[in-house]
Design a protein around this nucleic acid. Structure first.
Length: 255
DNA sequence: AAACTAGTCAACCGCAGTGAT
DNA sequence: AATCACTGCGGTTGACTAGTT
């Protein structure tokens, strides 16, 4: 027996999204979140679209902080380096680029970078762009370890509305964290927790161990990591590191 | 101006993975 | 263990646009 289709293809609209559909989806997600189920979302939101289509539209275009086009040389370099290392793992590559989606990175690669990359790999070391794939140990790939001033910044801003999960494009329906759930996050050595759907409360492993984590609300690892990224970016911004490239930022922030 | 070609990118498709039952 | 429902991902398609002949 085959899998049931995710939607009735005869009764769903396909093709480009209209501004009205975008507004409907955006508005629904703003007020209700995904409810943890994309399949039933279009019906609830009053959209004649497949749930997968809604999800894709939101993730790739409607979500806040999404950048389109205008890839920088640094972003190109990161893409080429990672492609040389892990291949076409677009979601992983996109995760290294703030505001980029896997689809965007994939399109950029297929239309612009592929030829360049292949040409270079036939000619490594003989031209001036082979640096694109030889920088895997550069600081930007190092794990960022929070320092005391970052820690202070996080606590100072723990209730800031600028970290509202909706604005950051995170799912608005955090789930209760079961006691058994390991909350380890590699990104910074901190775990994150959301309070009242607004703001970020970082807490140390010791704190976590001393608390009943059932009372905390959690996010998927990827979302929490993204949240930390935003907080970290803001920390750098507030401390005057924004004009430098990311590797320099990290070096400069070794406080 | 029309026809053709190449490039771009939004959207779709289908499979793999995962969690629930 | 098997099945189902759903999500996430990478590959691919096709509509659209810009450039060329």
């Amino acid at each position: 027996m085959g899998r049931a289709p995710c939607c009735d293809k005869a009764n769903v609209k396909r093709g480009p999204w209209s501004p009205e559909e975008d507004a409907t989806l955006k508005n629904y997600l703003k007020n209700h979140g995904t409810g943890g189920n994309w399949i039933t979302l279009p019906q609830k939101a009053g959209l004649k679209r497949c749930g997968k289509s809604c999800r894709l539209r939101w993730l790739n275009y409607l979500r806040p902080h999404i950048k389109h086009g205008g890839f920088t040389d640094e972003e190109d370099r990161v893409i080429c380096t990672l492609y040389a290392t892990i291949g076409s793992r677009w979601s992983l590559i996109a995760a290294q680029l703030q505001g980029r989606t896997d689809n965007d990175v994939k399109n950029h690669w297929n239309t612009k970078l592929k030829k360049k990359f292949l040409a270079e790999n036939n000619n490594i070391g003989t031209n001036n762009t082979s640096h694109m794939i030889n920088n895997i140990d550069s600081p930007q790939f190092s794990t960022f370890t929070p320092q005391p001033q970052v820690e202070a910044f996080l606590f100072d801003h723990k209730n800031s509305p600028c970290y509202d999960p909706y604005i950051l494009g995170l799912d608005q329906t955090p789930f209760p964290v079961p006691l058994s759930m390991p909350l380890e996050l590699d990104v910074s050595g901190y775990e994150t927790s959301m309070s009242n759907n607004c703001g970020i409360i970082p807490f140390s492993k010791e704190e976590k161990d001393n608390n009943n984590t059932q009372q905390w609300l959690g996010y998927e690892d990827g979302d929490a990591a993204m949240l930390l990224d935003f907080v970290y970016e803001d920390f750098l911004h507030n401390n005057g590191f924004v004009s430098q490239d990311k590797s320099s930022q990290i070096a400069s922030s070794s406080i």
